[in-house]
Design a protein around this nucleic acid. Structure first.
Lengths: 125, 125
DNA sequence: GATTGAGTACGAATCCAATCGTAATATTAT
DNA sequence: ATAATATTACGATTGGATTCGTACTCAATC
């Protein structure tokens, strides 16, 4: 049984960057982190080292500058967090979450079409 | 400008209970918390006292057993967490979140109808 | 009015995330 | 080779969340 995926706040931020870039060095990650937070390079480094120990990322050590890759599929994290948010914030109602998401943000027309198709597919089975 | 709403993990769990019950005593909350976590009564008490200091809840002290109420609208928390999850886990795509939610869970037919209506309303403006 | 029971108040301890300074190591340029 | 630069390794500190033991308070019951 796989342990529960439970990254800290900062770890999730770094994972989010790695998921977008697929692969990155500490410096690359740090440059993005810095846009939001004012922290030192070694802080980001240390975090990523810890994430490596925890198995949240793997790293290629062949070259001097290590190259990091996220271990976990983004999809797994997505599912876990969506589940949790539905439970704690929407009393277990998926549709409430969906309505909130659609209402407060501004999905494009094609987004909406895509969602309609999804719904039709779900209803026609 | 209102401060950012940022309850801790445990605080969010308690808020979630209060949102469902509207109002509750420490004991009532604790009884629910205990189903999940094995913690002492005074731990829950202390947490709720701290939440009171932070302004996350208010309490009625008229009777000996205090009665707690959440300060914050659940809706505000919902919006904040949904925003965050969209950014960190769905690269900013609302529709991706919606698709994930609809796919992995099992909304009822009437849920889906409701969502379709919502979409139509959004498209017809 | 003493005792018991259920509650609150509060301090202290523990744990862990986050941060950073400094040393060690490797690479590049002079 | 040496100096300068970039990177990693690591230890230590800080701060906040969490936990709980114990003391205190009040009300009901004997």
């Amino acid at each position: 049984m796989s342990k529960v995926f439970k990254p800290t706040e900062s770890e999730l931020e770094i994972l989010s960057i790695l998921w977008d870039k697929q692969t990155a060095t500490v410096r690359e990650v740090h440059e993005i982190v810095q846009k939001t937070k004012d922290v030192g390079y070694t802080t980001t480094l240390k975090l990523m080292q810890i994430m490596n120990e925890k198995g949240l990322v793997t790293r290629n050590v062949l070259s001097k500058t290590h190259i990091y890759t996220p271990t976990l599929q983004r999809e797994i994290a997505q599912e876990q967090y969506v589940n949790k948010i539905i439970q704690t914030l929407f009393s277990g109602s998926t549709s409430q979450l969906v309505l909130q998401a659609l209402g407060k943000h501004n999905p494009t027309t094609s987004d909406l079409d895509e969602i309609k198709n999804m719904i039709n597919a779900l209803q026609n089975k």
